[in-house]
Structure formats: structure tokens, C-alpha cells
Design a protein around this nucleic acid. Structure first.
Length: 591
RNA sequence: GGACCCGUAGCUCAGCUGGAUAGAGCGCUGCCCUCCGAAGGCAGAGGUCGAAGGUUCGAAUCCUUUCGGGUCCGCCA
């Protein structure tokens, strides 16, 4: 993208240059906080800058006086029609309309690349998301993290970052063993065991979990491949060492296969799947301990009991602890249990060391809010392992309550009765799921109303944005689908209506929206931008109903028609660009 | 007892990292279809930003305290 396609960045450069000329004695970094933004009130002009206020203190000048000087400088620019100081030291700018209109051909020339950020130095960003345990099909609880993570990865790419999308497979630990036992039970059933579930459950450490039907076909598949070799004669359970590894690996593979299918149905992609067992097998746990130990960040100690509600069976036991408190955590965290085996946290530390070793300068994790208490310790670990050189951002996604016909839809994984992700997609469609999940900031709870997301009304943002795109396409089809390259050459002087210029100004804000959303790791901002853009377009469309001279296609005015078609084509480009960041397919027509 | 998240119009939510008179949709009120793009459109009312202090030129935004709601809290992952 050429620098001139971002009007605001262009103008900001002008403002900084003007300030530099007024205040040549200030160091260059004095201008870092200078912003050029669309004013809240459109009557103030096209753009506003806080530049005078930001440097007033350093310059030891009152903001209004500096603003006046800035205005004088900016008026020298040919694109600035009017520069006026306002309020406590703002400078409002009114720009040459031709300069504003130039956004349209710039959008058409850039196409899908419009809004792309500059290529970033420093190596790829690692974004890890979903990472659902491979213990069953995905349910709606996983869905929000999947969508937010996927959209965040797409957003960061749009903003110019190289991104590696990662899925951490929790294939080690007690949960997966419990899963293996559950599958083994289904296998015995497939062989026709005379045991009852209760009898079998008594032989299982921790009891029989994961009673869902979805393991039945896995048990049958095991019988088909291994016949009765994993059991004692008469379809009775064999000792665990004869089957546990085999069944566990087989089941994890089956579950991951199902999860991949679910993710594909949701359009969620990953570049890398990292296995927890592989991380451990490769020795990262030992490397992590050695690294921390070398920095004197490991010791053996006893933790205080959790305050407020001490567990019944609490007793102080010495454990291997990481000095997380030295990096901002509240207490030191256990790396090994009292029996000497590693904790889940230790494995996660190992995983993060492996990531650091792979050369990522920035790590991003998308977690459910129930892991909120885990953020500080992980950030502490990353800071400790990397000597504070690598950053870890954690995006927490709050709970989604699924509602249908006014009734909450509850889910419970281990009981085996829950709403699967697939159910949700089948009910409302992939695009509605994705868009709706992004209509709240991720750290706020949301209600997912199955009835509302398929409504075709103004209050359904999915419909509203798709409808805007479909209308664009409809107009362009009626005009014979003119080539964007041709439309980019069209003179645009006839675009003078306030609604037309408002639409262009909105499109001018797309690059800075991408930049800000990526920096804040907030993909939901894209959804809100698209709603605003769609609204601007619908307003313009509707004006054509009251005033026929404002319709897009007018046989009696071929030149104005061409200019408006260019505007419509540019709008569809930006809509598609935004939908692409959300992973939503633009539709050609509404049904 | 502690940690983290949320609290903004009657309802559901934005608010671009501290800026101007706090915004949108729904709902409400009032206008607008014999026909041409009404699965609608236009306009209006509606707020001590949970509360109280503080920081400064300036706070919904940052800090402290407090009140509601939600997630969690040795060797579960």
C-alpha cells in the first residue's frame, strides 16, 4: 500500500512536520502522541488534531497559542481549505473535497490490499487459540475463543504482521488418561462385555468420566482394528499396560480429527498443532527448569493454604516452586507436585520456552475467562524465561450464554449432553456465528440468541452488513459490472452530496481502524466499523428513494453515474476487506 | 480472605488507549407508501457514564476507596 492511501497518516505527517518547523528545538520523539482523527462532530470539519495540546507543555506555550501557530502553517498546504483552533487547543481541518474524493480511486487501485499495514520488523507473532482438550467434540463454549483468535490472527496479518496460528494439544495428563478409560469401556462394550458400567467404573482410577455417546464409534473402530487383542478373554478388561498407550493415542487422534472437522466447518484455521506430549518428550520441561534455575528462580518450599476456603484435606507439603512473585505474580507457583511429577503449569512453561526458542518476539494467547487467574503467572514465566524481551498478551473471552426462544441452553461436557459447535453452525450458519461472536468486546459476557442472529432486520448486524454488500453488488451488476481499474479513472467532481462524502470519509478511516484494532488486539472493532460503514451506505441508498437524482444509476447523467459506480465499487471493496478480517463470506444477494 | 473481568439512555451495547455538547440499534412519540427501490425512511424525547474522593488545562477512560454482577483461587487440565 502506498502511504497516501491512509489520509489520516498523511495528514499526521503534515502536522508533525509543521510542529517541527514551529518548534525546531524539541527532540523528535516529542511528537509521538500527536493524533489526527475524525472529529466527533462532523460539523467541526474533516479532521482534528490534538497536536498543539500534546506538545504545549514541552514547548512551554499555552495550547491555544500553539494551535493558532499550527493553523497558520497548515493553511499553507494545498489540501487544507480551512484550519481553525478550537476548544482547549484542538485544530480542526477542513480539506479540499477533491483530496477526500481521492480516497475512492485509491481504494479501487489497492483492492483487497486497502487498509493493509506496513510490513513489520522483528519476526512473526505467535497467536495461540482454541486449544480445546482433545476429549470430545467442540461445544459452543470453545466457539468464541476460536472465532476471536482466528479473527485476531487475520487482523494482525492485515495490519502487516507475520503471524503463526497455533493450537496446543493437551494430550498429556490425567484428563487424557480418563478419556482413554472411557474409550476402553466403549471398546469392551463393542466386544460384548458382560460387565455393567458400574462394575467397570470401579476399576477405573478416579471413576468413569466422559460418558458421551461420541466415544461409541471410537470403541467400535478399536474393535475393528485390534479385534479382541486389547482385552482378556470374554471381553473382560486387561491390565492397563496392555492397552492404555494404544487406546489413548488412538482416541486423541480420533478426537483431534473431529475437532479439525469442526474448526473447518467454522472456517477456523491453524498453521501449527503443538503436542504437549511432544514438548515434554523433547525435553523442554528440563530446559525450562534449567533456565529458571540458572537465574535462581526455583526453590523447594511450602505454599500458604488458599484463604477463605481451605480445602478439607489441606496439608502443607514441599513442592518445587517458581518465583513468580519476582515478576509481578501474587504467589510463587508450583512446577512440580509433592510427588515430584510436573504440573500442568510446568508443561505450559515448557511450551512457552519452546515458543521463545522458535524466535517469536510477541506471543498472544486467547483463553476462556475461567483461566483469568492464570494470566499473571504465565506472563511472569515468559518474562523470566526471555529476560523480559518477549511479550505475552492474553485475550480473555467471557462466557457465552446461548439462548433459544427465550430459554437458556445449558451445556455440560462430561455428562455427554451439550450443544456442540456443529449444532450451532447447522442452526444459524458459519458466517452468522462468526460475525455475532465479534459483536461484543471479548472480555464482556454475551448472549447468543439463536432466533435473533437469523432475523432479517436492521437490528441484526450480520444481516445489515451483508445486505449493504449485496446492494453494492446488485447496483454493479445492473451497470454491467464495470472493471474497478476503469472506475478508478473516472472524474469524481459530481460526488458532492453530504451522504456521499460521509461514506468516503468513513472508508478513509479503514486503515487506521485496522491499525488501532490490531494494536489493542480487539477484532470486535472491525465488526463495529462495518456496521457504521453499512449504515453510511444504506443512508445514501435511501436518499435515492426520496430524491431520484441521488440514485446510483441515472441514464440521463452518464458521468455522475460513473462517479457513483466508483463510489459503490469502493464501498464493496472495503466491506469485503472487513468481512475477510472477520472470516465472513460476503454475499452477492440476499435470499 | 484474595485475584481478574463487567457496571454508560427503559433494553442490548459502542465509545478509536486522557479531549470538544457521551453515541448506535431496539423500544417510545410524531411525521412519510394509490405509483417509481417501504424485509423501510425522517425527526424528536430520553444520561449526575454504579457511588465517593483523587491526579490535571481536561476523566466514561488513569489512581484509591466502596456497592452490585460474573469468573476463578495448593499437587485439575
Amino acid at each position: 500500500m502506498t502511504p497516501t492511501t491512509d489520509l489520516f497518516a498523511t495528514m499526521r505527517a503534515h502536522v508533525v512536520e509543521a510542529l517541527r518547523q514551529i518548534l525546531p528545538e524539541l527532540p523528535p520523539d516529542s511528537f509521538a502522541r500527536v493524533l489526527v482523527e475524525p472529529p466527533k462532530d462532523a460539523s467541526h470539519g474533516d479532521m482534528a488534531t490534538n497536536g498543539a495540546m500534546m506538545v504545549a507543555k514541552l514547548a512551554k506555550m499555552p495550547p491555544p497559542k500553539l494551535a493558532a501557530a499550527l493553523c497558520e502553517k497548515l493553511r499553507e498546504l494545498p489540501v487544507v481549505v480551512e484550519a481553525t483552533p478550537a476548544g482547549p487547543g484542538f485544530v480542526n481541518l477542513r480539506l479540499d473535497e477533491a483530496f477526500v474524493r481521492a480516497v475512492v480511486p485509491a481504494v479501487l487501485a489497492a483492492g483487497p490490499a486497502y487498509g493493509d499495514g506496513p510490513a513489520r520488523e522483528g519476526g512473526p507473532v505467535n497467536v495461540e487459540y482454541v486449544s480445546a482438550n482433545p476429549t470430545g467434540p467442540m461445544h459452543v463454549g470453545h466457539c468464541r475463543g476460536a472465532v476471536v483468535g482466528d479473527a485476531l490472527a487475520l487482523l494482525l496479518r492485515k495490519a502487516g504482521y507475520d503471524v503463526t496460528r497455533e493450537y496446543y494439544v493437551n494430550d498429556a495428563g490425567a484428563q487424557v488418561l480418563a478419556l482413554a478409560y472411557a474409550t476402553y469401556w466403549r471398546y469392551l462394550q463393542a466386544l460384548g462385555t458382560p460387565m455393567t458400567e458400574e462394575e467397570f467404573a470401579q476399576s477405573v482410577p478416579g471413576g468413569l468420566q466422559y460418558k458421551g455417546e461420541y466415544l461409541v464409534p471410537v470403541g467400535i473402530a478399536l474393535r475393528q482394528i485390534f479385534k479382541e487383542t486389547l482385552a482378556e478373554p470374554g471381553a473382560m478388561p486387561a491390565a492397563a499396560i496392555h492397552w492404555l498407550d494404544t487406546v489413548r493415542d488412538f482416541t486423541v487422534e480420533a478426537m483431534m480429527s473431529a475437532i479439525r472437522e469442526d474448526l473447518a466447518a467454522l472456517g477456523v484455521e491453524h498453521d501449527v498443532f503443538i503436542s504437549e506430549r511432544a514438548i515434554v518428550a523433547e525435553g523442554w520441561l528440563e530446559k525450562a527448569e534449567a533456565t529458571l534455575s540458572a537465574k535462581d528462580l526455583i526453590y523447594t518450599g511450602v505454599l500458604e493454604p488458599p484463604k477463605g476456603k481451605t480445602p478439607e484435606d489441606w496439608e502443607p507439603r514441599p513442592q518445587v516452586l517458581f518465583r513468580a512473585t519476582q515478576y509481578g505474580d501474587d504467589v510463587d507457583r508450583p512446577l512440580r507436585k509433592s510427588d515430584g511429577s510436573g504440573t500442568y503449569f510446568a508443561n505450559d512453561v515448557a511450551n512457552h520456552l519452546a515458543k521463545i526458542d522458535r524466535g517469536f518476539p510477541q506471543l498472544v494467547q486467547v483463553w476462556g475467562a475461567d483461566h483469568g487467574g492464570y494470566v499473571k503467572r504465565m506472563q511472569a514465566a515468559v518474562a523470566a524465561l526471555s529476560d523480559r524481551k518477549v511479550s505475552l498478551d492474553v485475550v480473555l473471552t467471557q462466557i457465552v450464554h446461548v439462548v433459544k426462544d427465550g430459554e437458556p441452553v445449558r451445556m455440560s461436557k462430561r455428562a455427554g449432553t451439550y450443544v456442540t459447535l456443529r449444532d450451532l453452525i447447522d442452526e444459524v450458519g458459519k458466517d452468522a456465528v462468526r460475525f455475532t461472536m465479534l459483536t461484543r468486546k471479548s472480555d464482556a459476557q454475551m448472549e447468543f440468541d439463536l432466533n435473533k442472529v437469523i432475523e432479517q432486520t436492521r437490528e441484526n448486524p450480520v444481516f445489515y452488513v451483508q445486505y449493504a454488500h449485496a446492494r453494492c453488488r446488485s447496483v454493479l451488476r445492473s451497470a454491467g459490472d464495470p472493471a474497478p481499474t476503469d472506475l478508478a479513472q473516472v472524474p469524481l467532481d459530481s460526488l458532492t452530496d453530504p451522504a456521499e462524502l460521509a461514506l468516503i470519509r468513513r472508508m478513509a478511516g479503514w486503515p487506521r481502524t485496522v491499525e488501532a484494532a490490531a494494536a489493542a488486539r480487539e477484532p470486535h472493532r472491525i465488526a463495529f466499523f462495518l456496521q457504521d460503514l453499512a449504515s453510511d451506505f444504506h443512508v445514501l441508498w435511501n436518499r435515492g428513494r426520496d430524491d431520484a437524482t441521488l440514485r446510483f444509476i441515472r441514464a440521463e447523467e452518464p458521468e455522475a453515474t460513473q462517479a457513483r459506480l466508483a463510489l459503490v465499487a469502493a464501498t464493496s471493496v472495503v466491506l469485503r476487506s472487513g468481512l475477510a478480517v472477520m472470516g465472513v463470506e460476503p454475499v452477492e444477494e440476499m435470499r
